[in-house]
Amino acid sequence: MKSARLPAGIAVALVAIAGFTGCASTTSSLRQAASDARSAAETAQLAMIQQRDDGTFLTTTQTALGDAITELGAAEQAATELQAATSAETAEQKSTLRAIRDATDAVLAAQRSVAADAGRAVPALRSTAATLTKLADRLERAEKQQ
């Protein structure tokens, strides 16, 4: 008897999860992707600053940069998979993808330079994190107006 309840409970949970995820607007989903990408870029920036200032945490820095690339890839995939319904949403999607890809490029450049000159990568990482912050804030304002 209990085995019949367990699958039914799982089914109810899956339907609830699908309902919640289906309710997110395109703007909200883009804001989340931009926020996730911003966190990844900021983490990479902090890792490179620590590496520049101390120089003893190379493996930790390399791990942080690898994790940032993974998170940026997930944010890009999330933004790519959205179905924009209006031309404004399409423009926001393109803007979000461009910013995420710029951040990815900056982190990849940081990975290449980490051992030689960690400080060189910090300005690009700072710039992409600032761009993503502005984008996420703009998307949050747009989301609240919906």
Rank of each mutant, 00 (worst) to 15 (best):
A34W: 07
S35P: 06
D36G: 14
D36K: 13
D36C: 09
D36F: 09
D36H: 09
A37E: 09
A37K: 04
A37M: 07
S39V: 12
A40T: 01
A40L: 06
A40W: 09
A41N: 05
E42Y: 06
A44Y: 01
A44D: 05
Q45G: 04
Q45N: 06
Q45D: 03
Q45T: 06
L46Y: 13
L46G: 08
A47N: 06
A47F: 09
M48I: 05
M48V: 01
M48T: 03
I49V: 08
I49M: 15
I49D: 02
I49Y: 13
I49F: 08
Q50Y: 10
Q51V: 04
R52I: 01
D54I: 01
G55I: 14
G55W: 08
T56E: 15
T56L: 13
L58Q: 08
L58S: 07
L58T: 12
T59W: 06
T59R: 07
T60Y: 09
T61D: 06
T61F: 05
T61Y: 03
T61R: 02
Q62N: 06
Q62M: 02
T63S: 15
A64T: 14
A64Y: 08
A64M: 13
L65Y: 01
G66L: 14
D67V: 12
A68Q: 12
A68S: 06
I69E: 14
I69Y: 08
I69S: 09
I69M: 12
T70M: 04
L72F: 05
G73E: 05
G73T: 14
A74V: 11
A74Y: 13
E76V: 10
Q77V: 13
Q77K: 11
A78L: 14
A78D: 07
A78S: 15
A79M: 05
A79H: 10
T80F: 10
T80E: 10
T80G: 11
E81H: 14
E81W: 11
E81M: 14
L82D: 03
L82N: 04
Q83Y: 02
A88T: 10
E89I: 00
E89F: 11
E89S: 01
T90E: 02
T90C: 00
A91G: 14
A91D: 03
E92L: 07
E92G: 02
Q93V: 01
Q93M: 00
K94Q: 15
S95D: 14
S95N: 15
